[in-house]
């Protein structure tokens, strides 16, 4: 409860200057970190120490620091978003670590997410998948009244469950095949659960899966690792739904 001070931590972190660089681990020590600090605040402090020592600080992605923008990544001690459940790295706090511990930090590892620098990866592949069909084809204006089509409470809630995806990529990083099926299925289910999105559900599934395959993500073998590491608890039942949409789409071709 009350914050304590972690006197010393060893931070073993992946350093890679750019996409071409081979990369390697380096270990730094850091002292006097409050257990009430967040993991990224610990990295801020480490970085300011490195700058003062004349070294290059560690590049990592982060922005909102409240678990919703999906920018932060980090594979910490072998787990996507670290050793807590239902949190992003920015919500992880230092009370989850012990004094004297060595903490290993790596970037997301996936062929489709090349490293840009240190812990920062390029997730443009996710953008391309969504651009392939992750939307409802309506223009601004000329739409019916919001209450024109009733939607059951249950459907709206299920759609919302899937729509909670923050696009962080933890599912891909956690998967031994680097599959993006949980990510794709979340968008497909979010829209297919709503009458507005149902119209294009099949073609959407087909286009998004084709793009996913093209971009070098692996296949899904139902290990369920993605669901475990998803900070927003997106369920793998969405993958079953995606498979259904996808198969009927192929069947009707």
């Amino acid at each position: 409860m009350a914050d304590k001070i972690l006197k010393k931590l060893n931070i073993k972190v992946w350093r890679q200057n750019n996409a071409q660089d081979k990369g390697r681990f380096e270990t730094y020590t850091i002292e006097n970190i409050s257990t009430g600090s967040s993991f990224l605040e610990m990295l801020d402090i480490l970085n300011n120490n490195l700058i003062e020592e004349g070294k290059d600080p560690i590049a990592f992605d982060h922005d909102c620091r409240e678990g919703i923008c999906g920018t932060c990544s980090l594979f910490i001690n072998g787990r996507a978003h670290g050793p807590d459940t239902e949190v992003t790295t920015c919500q992880l706090h230092m009370r989850k670590f012990k004094d004297g511990e060595t903490i290993t930090i790596e970037p997301w590892r996936a062929a489709a997410f090349p490293v840009i620098k240190d812990l920062v990866v390029d997730r443009t592949a996710f953008e391309k998948i969504l651009q392939a069909g992750g939307y409802i084809s309506v223009n601004t204006g000329g739409v019916p009244d919001a209450n024109a089509i009733p939607i059951s409470h249950e459907d709206a809630e299920e759609s919302m469950d899937a729509a909670s995806c923050i696009g962080c990529g933890a599912c891909v990083a956690a998967c031994k095949n680097s599959s993006a099926m949980l990510f794709v299925s979340a968008k497909v289910a979010h829209l297919a659960k709503l009458p507005q999105g149902k119209v294009e559900a099949k073609s959407r599934a087909r286009k998004m899966v084709a793009k996913m395959d093209e971009l070098g993500f692996g296949g899904c073998t139902n290990t369920g690792a993605c669901e475990v590491e998803c900070p927003k608890s997106i369920s793998i039942t969405n993958i079953a739904r995606l498979n259904r949409e996808y198969l009927t789409a192929r069947f009707s071709e």
Partner: peptide
């Protein structure tokens, strides 16, 4: 609100 519903925003119902 009309526009957002048409786009597939899952508002509370």
């Amino acid at each position: 609100i009309d526009q957002c519903v048409a786009q597939g925003v899952p508002f509370g119902r």
